[in-house]
Design a protein around this nucleic acid. Structure first.
Length: 197
DNA sequence: ATCGTCAACTAGACTA
DNA sequence: TAGTCTAGTTGACGAT
């Protein structure tokens, strides 16, 4: 990138940006005053400027005067590029970018603010979509599991039992435990513990 | 006429 | 306290 001021009686900017056509701005005194790009004009004057001023300030490449600025494709593209590199700008970067784009630093600042807002909105929308899908899947899974529980209840399956080698009686499998010392299987009832293996 | 987009604004919170 | 941020709003403008 090269910013080459030339001439002394007027502000000439020849700017080359990699991947872009050169921006060239020659602001002549014909407007009746020196136009300082870094100095914010009165807001009403900015919004309701003359046709000549609109052409220069808007830099939109056509003769259609606007009451409100629309950034050119080149300006938007370069702003997007800068945004991809960094979502915030320090004052120096802002100043430089504004100069390159032939905009006021305030406009660059506003663009970045709005861009961050759009970015966040998009992110939120994506998260919302993801959560909706996730909710749908969980609802579906929940239904399946509830149905399965209903089916199991309907079968009324008795709790699993084992036959005691001693008494030949059925014992509840859930009452069987392994003795950590002798490693024998014991059965625990309400009143006593009995070794069965 | 209505709607979506976006530059620009305001208010209030935060921070160095 | 000045500068910067976000959230919300306004208004111009283009598309339909």
């Amino acid at each position: 990138m090269a910013i080459l001021p030339t001439g002394t009686s007027r502000l000439d900017l020849s700017i080359s940006v990699p991947g872009f056509n050169s921006f060239s701005s020659s602001l002549t005194p014909s407007v009746g005053r020196d136009l300082d790009m870094n100095k914010a004009p009165d807001e009403e004057e900015w919004m309701m400027g003359t046709m000549e001023e609109d052409e220069e300030i808007n830099n939109n490449g056509n003769n259609n005067p606007r009451k409100k600025l629309r950034l050119t494709k080149e300006q938007s593209h370069l702003l997007e590029q800068s945004f991809r590199q960094n979502h915030t700008l320090n004052p120096k970067q802002k100043e430089t970018l504004a100069e390159v784009l032939n905009l006021k630093p305030r406009q660059v600042e506003v663009w970045f603010q709005n861009r961050r807002a759009r970015s966040k909105l998009k992110q939120t929308e994506m998260e919302c979509e993801y959560l909706k899908r996730w909710f749908g899947l969980l609802t579906e899974q929940n239904k399946r599991l509830q149905k399965e529980v209903e089916e199991l209840r309907a079968m009324k399956v008795a709790p699993p039992t084992v036959i005691s080698p001693h008494s030949c009686e059925p014992l509840l499998a859930s009452n069987l435990t392994m003795c950590p010392r002798c490693e024998r299987v014991t059965t625990t009832t309400l009143d006593k513990t009995r070794i069965i293996v």
